[in-house]
Design a protein around this nucleic acid. Structure first.
Lengths: 91, 91
DNA sequence: AATGTAATTAAGTATTTACTTAATTATTTA
DNA sequence: TAAATAATTAAGTAAATACTTAATTACATT
C-alpha cells in the first residue's frame, strides 16, 4: 500500500468524516450520504478513494452496499509516524 | 493545528522525502535542493508548506536558512490514528 | 414485465496543486 | 561599494482534485 495514497485519502475533510462515521458501525452508501450536504455521486467517489487506499471495505447486500472501516491500514500510518520518534541514527 | 493540512502536507512524495532527509540532521535549503531533480524555488515552496503545517522549523544563520524536523507534530498524527484502535464505542 | 430505489459511472467544470523561469531580497566577500 | 551566493517571491501553466447533473446498472416490489 502506498503511504502517499493513504495520506492523500486522509487529507480530505469529508473523507475523514466518513471514517469517523464508520467508527460507530457499518453504513450503506446512502446512509453515509445523508450525513453530508453533497450529492450521492460525490460521496460515491469519496468512498471509492477510501476503498482504493484500503481504508474501508465494502460488501453488497441486496441492493445496498455496506461500508466498513479497515483499522489495520491505520497501523501503516502509525508505523510511518513511529520512525520519526525512533530512528535518531547514530548520535 | 489542522490535521487536514497535516495530511495534505504529507501526501506529497517530495515533501516526505524532505522529512526523511531531515531525520539525519538539519540542512539548509540548498542542501535539501541538491537531493532533488527540481528547481530551488520548487523546493522552497515545499519547505514553506512543511513549515506552515509545523512539520519543520527554520532558522536563519548568515545567508543560509537551516531547516529542522519538528517531531512533536508527528504526535498529532499518532493521536489521530490511535482513536481508530480504541474508540469502539459501547459494543 | 414495469416501476421504484440504491448506487455507480460518465462527462463536464471550477479550483487547487506542483511545478517552471524570471525577478527580488538578504548576506557575504573582494 | 560592487559582484557573488543563498534563498525567496512573483507570475504563469499543465495536471490533478472535488465537485456537479445526467445517464446507467443492479436489485426489489408490485
Amino acid at each position: 500500500m502506498a503511504i502517499g495514497e493513504l495520506f492523500k485519502a486522509l487529507s480530505d475533510d469529508n473523507r475523514r468524516k466518513i471514517l469517523d462515521l464508520l467508527k460507530d458501525g457499518d453504513l450503506t452508501s446512502g446512509e453515509i450520504a445523508n450525513h453530508f450536504n453533497m450529492s450521492k455521486p460525490g460521496i460515491s467517489q469519496h468512498l471509492n478513494i477510501l476503498k482504493n487506499s484500503e481504508l474501508v471495505f465494502s460488501h453488497k447486500k441486496g441492493q445496498y452496499v455496506y461500508y466498513s472501516l479497515n483499522t489495520s491500514v491505520v497501523q501503516d500510518i502509525m508505523k510511518w509516524a513511529i520512525q520519526f520518534k525512533k530512528d535518531k541514527g547514530e548520535e
